[in-house]
Nucleic acid binder design. Structure first.
Lengths: 187, 187
DNA sequence: TGACTAAACTAATGTCATTAGTTATTATAC
DNA sequence: GTATAATAACTAATGACATTAGTTTAGTCA
């Protein structure tokens, strides 16, 4: 017995993400995770500190992925095009990995240092996209809040089946973003 | 023993809401609820079907309160003023009852019939506010999605301490809403 | 080879939700 | 007013889960 599984925290994290995306964040239990990894529950504590710690790792990873997806999406774009592409990249990430994103949304608060850092990276990325607008620092920060509210709000409502009308979702998102950006430009 | 407490589902619901707002939704357990109501846990099942049922009741109630708050806020207002007031009423409700709102955000999905109905009431209310704009039905529905995304996104990010910069939050919200509305008007 | 490190394990505890079955209180019917 | 029915509380039991303590054993390295 006790054959080593070669586990490490990354493997545990990836398995947790897989369960989250396939079955929902509430089914990410240490029991389910251990079963998936052919190990007993307490063995997981060699790699993660516990369930709350795992949730934090997932949130952090989620924010990293979102940033990466947005970075990739804006390559070769600037101004309004870039912001639109970044917004879609954000929402498309949530569509592809709803459980992982939900781990972040389910976090009681985002005060954990590492989560904070990943979140700061997202904010700084959006600030970069706003440079062509030559806003004051304060103005830019308000816009970042606006942009984040829009994409997070849209993505989470969509994820929870909050949009029930028979209406193109991408079109809703496109209009939401372009309307906001138009308001910015014509402000 | 077994003195009757005069419990009913409303009392249970109100106690759950109180725990949620004071201590957070994750501490709304049947055990905590029973203790608060001077009753043993199984007794709660005479009034609610179980924890998932309670969560649904909370979500439904949350949506009702949000609608009421918005209705109250727009009295005597119309057009952009009304939409701005409604947006602030939404966010201020979440500020006042974060745990109750979180119960809704924590629901796996919003497919439950009664939650759906309460949600439809909110959508219909926003549609009424859009009447002065004389939009097509499709256009109006896209705007409703936009408005909901904005207020939900802002409120939930704020609730989870997602806004960490030292920057007026009401001002962020005001700008977010007016920028969007300006984009609509100048579309 | 021998000693150390660490990854797995077993065992135990405590919290929680839920169900089944029981008791006792309140309301209703007569 | 008393008998009966409905129901709100209870006790007891089960099963899922997270977590901690202590143990074994598999790799690693001197």
């Amino acid at each position: 017995m006790a054959i080593r599984q070669g586990l490490d925290s990354e493997t545990v994290l990836l398995a947790a993400i897989e369960i989250a995306d396939q079955q929902g964040i509430e089914l990410v239990t240490l029991a389910a995770l251990a079963a998936k990894l052919n190990v007993k529950t307490p063995s997981l504590y060699n790699h993660i500190k516990g369930l709350p710690d795992l949730r934090k790792l997932m949130s952090q990873r989620s924010l990293q992925h979102i940033r990466e997806a947005m970075v990739e999406a804006v390559l070769g774009k600037s101004g309004e095009d870039a912001l639109l592409a970044a917004g879609f990249a954000y929402v498309n990430f949530v569509r592809k990995q709803p459980g992982l994103y939900d781990a972040m949304a389910a976090l009681p608060d985002l005060e954990d240092p590492q989560v904070k850092e990943a979140s700061t990276q997202v904010v700084m990325f959006i600030l970069r996209l706003l440079e062509p607008y030559h806003l004051s620092e304060e103005d830019a920060l308000h816009v970042v809040r606006g942009f984040r509210s829009i994409v997070h709000g849209f993505a989470s409502l969509e994820m929870k089946n909050g949009f029930r009308m028979n209406l193109e979702r991408d079109e809703s998102l496109r209009r939401l973003l372009t309307t906001y950006l138009r308001g910015m430009a014509k402000g």
